[in-house]
Design a protein around this nucleic acid. Structure first.
Length: 882
RNA sequence: GGAAGUUUAGCUCAGCCGGGAGAGCACCUGCCUUACAAGCAGGGGGUCAUAGGUUCGAUCCCUAUAACUUCCACCA
């Protein structure tokens, strides 16, 4: 047998262990009619992205669930994949081109796409390697890409179906435009921030009079596109002006004064300039009053030919010039500081321009209804369920989804236009060559791409081959659980639900497990600009992947944000070191011994039954917690069992047997140690897969790999309830003696003689329990001898005592005892007992409690009262004897 | 303006069905006890944000208040 290294060093084996899993085929999903499928779709990270701590948490949670289910015997498919991330990726490539001194327009579409694919090839594998470092047990042979053939086919089909149903339309709307990325963005892609700006007050002269109307604006340059000024119909100040015509300064355009409820008379001057082409509200006003829409900006944010003399200026330059010019004309009334919410591009952070533009939209309202119903009817459940409310909130207030992007990297919109008759042609599969309306062969394809999320929305079934009814689709769909952060609900969860129900008539997943954000130790979001990001790969390098995983889930409640710091990684690493050494200890003692293979061949001692009982309780708790996706609680239960019960108690208790002369007893104890260790490792495996697999390889009689071993099952025959409870008395006894020694400043190395005085009724069982465990008790309590006596007098005058469940403990400490301190200590004990008596007595004196509370509780209180009354009596006697 | 969340030990956070408040870290006291000092043993520390209510009984349920966080809306 190989020897384990003396220290836990994850770098030593993690890569090797992962390679072993890959080789074994343990990750590969199989269609097995005899098994129940369990499917998880990995949220596809950006293909050229890098693993960050948020991914690490998301992946860890999925891997825990997947490994648990795999060990439970399900036929597991964890489908991995990567996303083309249209805007993010294109943005990076454009950046690179800029560094090279060129642009995508100069390159042209074809050449640009070549560069993009090359970029994807260069960085596409990076994230996959990083996921492997983390231990992700997904089926890599099925690695999907949102732009691969399968997914593209699904995108095409989905678009076709929606188009045919009239749910995709093309129209002019105000959209969020990023002048840097030169594309439209969906509402969800806008990030808002409070920016310091100004409020400029301008006078617009009334035609044919000396009168003026004062408006206020935060974006003076948009006045170039003004086609009206609006006031509230109830506003008496302006009533006379409604219907009059204004002369738009600098431009000279004649524009009307209109009355519209949209205007708040109390805000600003109560008169609003209306720029229908550059503001969503103004757009609505424009529609209501049939105002012209004049777009004044080019795609790059410069003023277009509508701007007259301002043409070609950047929007901010134009703003400056216009304010100066208005001032020169005496039409600038005043300037105020003003902070307001401004939309920014979530990719490049440029200030967005709302502008009117022709885009493709999906009408969401009819699609949203089934998605709401499915959650109402519990076909899909959110964990924690409060996120269902967030989900409803979104879907109930949904607006149409702008799906076209002025990008090249992505799924090109599958719409062709006939150059002759102008017909729109959409086909489900093959590209059209002839116009079905006029027979013309001059067709041109729409230049734009689809929003990345359009393909992501199909992920749960496009990866399984939909629209084909593949065996995979039939077996693995619908999927079981989707794990993602709450920030992705509107982008992704919602849209998958909508598309899943629309195309497959089924919910795409039965459970949605939502987690929070990983923050830094001060609770701040991690960001590049703050430089407070934690690189998961560095953590893996320093502490190992298992430590990272444990740190990410322990002590975290579902859906809550969590703070990460080196302290947490260290704590996790320390725990794993404990496991490593405990295993090493067991193995060191096994050596050449013939250890019984299973429990039935072992004559179990009280301590054996106690640890097995604790193991069973833990198995039940962990299984339950995992089924409820309470991963933090599950990890906590395994860890405290492993450390507190197994390491600190059972291993210590077992030492006398291991170091003793009774070979049979030694082998039997080793049998129990191995049994408990194996089960502990299995319980721990979903959380810390590497170390458990590595140790598994050293264990005698451990067959195969732990990754495919069966997850421990609760066995009621091994629960040993009564015996375990009785054994707790031994633990209490040991603790009591230890406490006495510390409290009396007895040197740890000095062994004490312990006398026990038991109640006659308990004497026999107490003697048996103490007798069987005598050597362990002596060792753990630091005692030289332990014996039963008639009374405390046996311990002599200067004895210290403690009341415990099994017996009243007396320890003679001779000259070491400081009588004053001992009296104070006992007095404190007495006060505690009296407090308990008062509490229990008070409760029992309450007639309402006695009659209305459950009988068991009342009985328990009575028992407690008696116990403490007895304790009080003994303590008083002890104090009196000092 | 709408919605959700949080408030528990010095810090970070757990706490399932209402029935004596928990962990890790930090702190204090001892220990290099032949698996582990990344460790062992013992210990101190909490009006469970505030005020009401329901209940025999509330950290937990209800109402209100306060503080903080996040998402949505986006008055030019």
């Amino acid at each position: 047998m190989k020897e384990m290294r003396t220290t836990y060093d994850p770098r030593e084996f993690e890569d090797k262990v992962y390679a072993g899993w890959m080789e074994s085929g343990a990750f590969s999903a199989k269609i097995d009619p005899d098994k129940v499928p369990f499917t998880v779709m990995m949220p596809p990270p950006n293909v050229t992205g890098q693993l960050h701590i948020g991914h690490a948490m998301d992946e860890t949670m999925q891997d825990i669930v997947v490994r648990f289910k795999r060990m439970q015997g399900y036929s597991v498919l964890w489908q991995p994949g990567v996303d083309h991330a249209s805007l993010a990726t294109e943005h990076k490539i454009v950046e690179k081109l800029r560094e090279e001194g060129t642009t995508k327009e100069e390159l042209g579409r074809e050449e640009f796409l070549k560069r993009a694919w090359a970029w994807k090839e260069q960085y596409g594998g990076r994230i996959v390697g990083q996921l492997k470092k983390l231990g992700s047990s997904c089926d890599w042979s099925r690695l999907a890409f949102t732009m691969d053939e399968k997914c593209s086919r699904a995108v095409r089909e989905a678009f076709f179906r929606l188009y045919e149903a009239g749910l995709i339309y093309r129209g002019s709307r105000i959209i969020n435009w990023c002048p840097d990325c030169k594309t439209a963005l969906s509402d969800e892609e806008v990030s808002w921030s409070e920016d310091a700006g100004h409020f400029w007050y301008f006078n617009y002269p009334v035609e044919g009079s000396e009168e003026v109307i004062t408006i206020a604006t935060t974006r003076p340059e948009t006045m170039l596109g003004d086609t009206a000024v609006a006031v509230n119909p109830k506003d008496k100040r302006y009533a006379a002006l409604v219907g009059k015509t204004l002369i738009l300064p600098l431009v000279g355009r004649r524009i009307p004064v209109v009355a519209d409820d949209y205007v708040d008379p109390a805000f600003g001057t109560g008169a609003v300039k209306i720029t229908p082409a550059h503001d969503p509200n103004d757009f609505e006003v424009g529609l209501r009053h049939k105002l012209p829409m004049i777009r004044i900006l080019n795609d790059d944010g410069t003023v277009n030919k509508e701007g007259g003399e301002y043409e070609g200026l950047d929007r901010y330059e134009a703003r400056k010039r216009i304010v100066e010019d208005m001032d020169a004309l005496g039409l600038l009334v005043k300037v105020e500081d003003h902070t307001h919410n401004v939309g920014h591009c979530h990719r490049c952070n440029a200030t967005l321009e709302p502008l009117v533009s022709k885009q493709w939209f999906v009408s969401m309202q009819t699609l949203a209804k089934p998605a709401i119903d499915a959650v109402v009817k519990n076909k899909t459940k959110f964990t924690p369920d409060r996120f269902a409310k967030i989900y409803y909130n979104w879907l109930e207030n949904i607006r149409d989804w702008c799906i076209s992007r002025q990008l090249w990297w992505g799924h090109r919109i599958p719409v062709w236009y006939c150059e002759k008759c102008g017909a729109e042609i959409v086909t489900p599969k093959d590209d059209p060559t002839v116009c079905p309306h006029c027979g013309c062969t001059h067709l041109s394809r729409d230049e734009d791409c689809l929003d990345t999320w359009f393909s992501s929305a199909l992920w749960p079934f496009s990866t399984l081959g939909w629209p084909e009814e593949t065996p995979e689709f039939k077996y693995f769909y619908p999927t079981d659980v989707l794990v993602t952060g709450y920030d992705i609900i509107p982008f992704w969860v919602m849209r998958m639900m909508v598309s899943g129900l629309r195309y497959t008539k089924k919910v795409p997943f039965r459970d949605v497990l939502i987690h929070g954000l990983v923050r830094d130790e001060k609770g701040r979001k991690m960001s590049k600009s703050l430089g407070n990001g934690i690189d998961p790969l560095e953590v893996i390098e320093q502490y190992g992947a298992d430590s990272l995983r444990l740190a990410l889930i322990s002590g975290v409640a579902p859906g809550n944000d969590t703070r990460m710091s080196a302290a947490k990684f260290e704590a996790a690493r320390n725990f794993l070191n404990k496991i490593w050494n405990a295993s090493r200890f067991v193995l060191m003692n096994v050596k050449e011994e013939e250890v019984p293979a299973d429990l039935s061949a072992i004559k179990l001692q009280p301590s054996d039954r106690w640890i097995i009982s604790r193991l069973m309780t833990t198995v039940r708790e962990v299984t339950l917690a995992l089924q409820k996706y309470d991963l933090g609680i599950a990890a906590d239960k395994v860890m405290s069992f492993a450390w507190d019960d197994f390491c600190d108690w059972y291993i210590e208790l077992s030492k006398p047997a291991l170091y003793g002369t009774d070979g049979e007893r030694k082998r039997q104890t080793l049998g129990v140690l191995l049994f408990v260790l194996k089960n502990t490792l299995k319980l721990l495996h979903p959380f810390a897969p590497f170390i458990t697999e590595e140790i598994w390889g050293y264990l005698p009689g451990a067959e195969g790999m732990i990754i495919t071993a069966e997850f421990p099952r609760y066995n009621s025959r091994l629960a040993y309830r009564e015996e375990a409870k009785a054994f707790e008395g031994v633990i209490e006894l040991i603790k009591a003696v230890r406490a006495i020694k510390v409290a009396t400043a007895c040197p740890p190395a000095k062994k004490v003689h312990v006398y026990l005085v038991a109640e006659p009724a308990q004497l026999v069982s107490a003697k048996r329990l103490v007798g069987v465990n005598k050597q362990s008790i002596l060792r753990l309590a630091g005692a030289s001898e332990i014996e039963f006596a008639e009374s405390g007098a046996a311990a002599g005058d200067k004895a210290v005592s403690q009341v415990s469940t099994i017996a009243h403990i007396f320890v003679p400490l001779g000259e070491l005892v400081n009588l004053e301190e001992e009296r104070a200590r006992l007095q404190k004990e007495l006060e505690r007992a009296e407090g308990e008596i008062a509490r229990a007595g008070g409760k029992l004196a309450n007639q309402n409690f006695v009659t209305k509370a459950p009988k068991k509780l009342v009985d328990d209180e009575r028992a407690k009262l008696e116990k403490f009354l007895d304790m009080k009596k003994k303590l008083e006697a002890q104090i009196a004897s000092l």
